[in-house]
């Protein structure tokens, strides 16, 4: 039996760690390499680095961060943000990442999912989806209808795509994504729990692992996402970055409640 995975997401801008709260204001909370090493040593299962660097001429800094992380951290990690092409993906994989996270680039050009899967294998391609509920009675902000009730958005939720979230998840899998991150823009930064209904709906309809994201604030939220939400892994940020909980306390909670979790010394 596979263990449920605890993953932490580190947002990086110009080589520094930041945490977006509702993707609006960000504040610097330190060095991504030392944070990564600390979490690795604490027994975290996997890491995600998201490059939110605004200007493309600063992107080289991220490659340096990835290389340095790979020299110090011996668990799998993925990198996303600003990856537009197979060549971009190859650069971060060669720098030491196991996987790439495709988000906006895949919305703009779904073919990049298959190209990356062909080049590096499905296990190396994570489709990251930012999702917003279409509120009852309102007209979806993008064009077209949303049969699932959820819409794919980009630019931190500021831009609607008119794409139905469930359809996009299925299509992403068919194109060659090996995992899916279900990131609820509505729940992100609230620390009030994952969007369970959304996570469950996606998990029930794809055959690849689903990572719950957005809203994790307490260990019981992760338990809910990994059981009721049907997720294979849960992603946390603020809960860990601000020191409210440790990797160990979260894992201990999940373990005590009967989930299979990798426990370390």
């Amino acid at each position: 039996m596979l263990s449920k995975r605890l993953i932490s997401c580190l947002d990086v801008r110009d080589g520094r760690l930041v945490k977006s709260v509702r993707f609006v204001d960000t504040k610097d909370i330190g060095d991504p390499v030392s944070a990564a090493r600390r979490y690795y040593e604490a027994g975290l299962d996997e890491l995600v680095f998201y490059d939110i660097t605004a200007s493309s001429d600063q992107r080289g800094i991220m490659i340096d961060v990835v290389e340095e992380v790979a020299r110090q951290v011996f668990i799998p990690f993925s990198v996303g943000g600003g990856l537009r092409s197979v060549d971009n993906c190859r650069r971060v994989l060669e720098a030491g990442a196991e996987k790439v996270n495709l988000n906006t680039a895949a919305v703009d050009n779904p073919g990049v999912i298959s190209e990356a899967a062909d080049a590096f294998g499905v296990q190396a391609v994570v489709l990251s989806m930012d999702i917003r509920a279409v509120s009852a009675g309102s007209v979806p902000s993008g064009s077209g209808s949303m049969p699932s009730g959820y819409e794919i958005v980009t630019h931190g939720g500021r831009r609607a795509t008119g794409m139905d979230a469930l359809e996009w998840a299925r299509r992403g899998e068919a194109l060659g994504a090996g995992e899916i991150v279900v990131n609820s823009i509505d729940a992100d930064g609230t620390l009030e729990g994952y969007e369970l209904k959304l996570t469950r709906m996606i998990a029930d309809n794809v055959g690849i692992p689903v990572i719950a994201s957005g809203g994790g604030g307490r260990p019981e939220h992760l338990y809910d996402a990994l059981t009721e939400g049907g997720a294979d892994a849960a992603l946390v940020a603020s809960m860990l970055h601000y020191g409210h909980y440790s990797v160990d306390s979260i894992k201990q909670h999940l373990h005590d409640r009967g989930l299979k979790i990798r426990m370390t010394d």
Partner: peptide, 13 residues
Amino acid sequence: DDALKVPHMGWNA
């Protein structure tokens, strides 16, 4: 078991 996805990816004992 449909719940066992392939590839087998993650931590196992």
